[in-house]
Design a protein around this nucleic acid. Structure first.
Lengths: 222, 222
DNA sequence: AGCCGGGTGGTACCGCGGTACCACGTGGTC
DNA sequence: GACCACGTGGTACCGCGGTACCACCCGGCT
């Protein structure tokens, strides 16, 4: 049984979704919300498997609500729905941590399939959007270094050194790392020094770049 | 009516696909191929709307065949199918120009929906793969440069300061920037200092991170 | 002429970052 | 017991990075 929270500012739209989801045994609508703030509150309270999220809403929009629900760390997955297939919406939603993005003209069985996929931890994108997304993907994502997958230099790092590298990638100073990891600054320096030597970076700045290259650090995180 | 070319080295697999596609009125199987070379030849000859392409085949594999069919410039769309959801396959197929990537355990109606979408010029990705793809997407694709997406702090930078920020994002030292831009190191310091002040970064490391966030710097670029 | 933004350049100072080298404890492995 | 990898910690030194402050030139605007 998949529990669903419906978020949309239009009562009629919510009614439609509820009718559809109530018509099949596998989903159960556990709540509704009319705007972002209510969605965030109810998501925390009801802990639904899936949040069906509209983008355009008065007050806090669906993107921001998605961001907060995902940031809250629960296991709720957010499936964003919109009438308009604007690239900005798609990008923003995905960056906010949405597990899926569908257009409201989706056919009922496809919406149910989407909810099923999202509940299972997968992700869905409306076919009409996927094309543009893939174009950007092939344009920006570097070709997979065939075979190895990740830089061999990463493998030579110990667990601790890896943690240190991530911290360096966040832009933290040695002092900050020492404080957060409860270490002396000398120890941090020792670790950082070894990391630099192992990955062949001359200073922490190139270590930051290396961390981004390897996906250890990522934009808009931390 | 959507015309389809089935490509798979296993006759039984081709038979299964043909049965399914023949059972609905909207698709028509116009040909079959058992390996890559035959697929390329028949695609050119039959000009099908959609090519259903297996990845693993003796001789020329599905990826290379996809690349050639797409490169040939016809209007055929390639929908890649495989039993194994290896990231390498997905990347390679998408780079080769495939319009879709599905797993062979897909349900019949979803395969038909996929063929329909691909024939319409859209794209489809198996939900199980979409999650990983989106992770890479948000990691690598810079935030949408157009319009509201970009940080207002960027706008306050002069052209020269922007160049300097990009250089800092590459991990260059002040001395290196001075050399490459044919400036004195003092001047570089002045510029960097102003950049840091404007974007609110305490040191060049956070400037690097800012540059990555804004898409001014990119992994594996220059 | 006067003013101002942008680019260029200098001097001086200080602190963090990076390196070299060493030390100690612990938990495995031989 | 001996050895090693790993994590932790210290001292000492030096240079790059960042800041504060100032100076000059140029082009555009008033």
């Amino acid at each position: 049984m998949t529990t669903v929270l419906i978020v949309d500012d239009q009562p009629l739209q919510r009614y439609g979704f509820r009718m559809l989801l109530d018509s099949v045994p596998e989903t159960e609508v556990v709540g509704e919300a009319a705007h972002g703030a209510e969605a965030v509150r109810k998501a925390a309270e009801l802990r639904p498997d899936v949040v069906l999220m509209d983008v355009r809403m008065p007050g806090m929009d669906g993107i921001e609500a998605t961001r907060r629900i995902v940031a809250a760390g629960g296991r709720s997955r957010v499936l964003v729905l919109t009438t308009f297939d604007l690239d900005e919406y798609v990008h923003a939603a995905l960056r906010a941590g949405a597990s899926g993005f569908l257009l409201k003209d989706v056919r009922p069985e496809e919406l149910l399939a989407g909810i099923r996929a999202v509940a299972a931890g997968d992700a869905v994108i409306a076919p009409a959007l996927t094309r543009r997304l893939l174009d950007e993907f092939t344009r920006y994502v570097p070709a997979r270094p065939t075979g190895s997958g990740e830089d061999p230099r990463l493998g030579s790092l110990t667990d601790r050194e890896r943690e240190i590298l991530v911290a360096v990638g966040k832009g933290w100073t040695n002092g900050e790392i020492a404080t957060r990891f409860v270490l002396s600054e000398s120890t941090v320096k020792t670790h950082v020094g070894r990391v630099l030597a192992k990955i062949g970076a001359r200073d922490r700045i190139q270590a930051v770049i290396f961390a981004y290259d390897q996906g250890l650090a990522r934009p808009n995180a931390g």
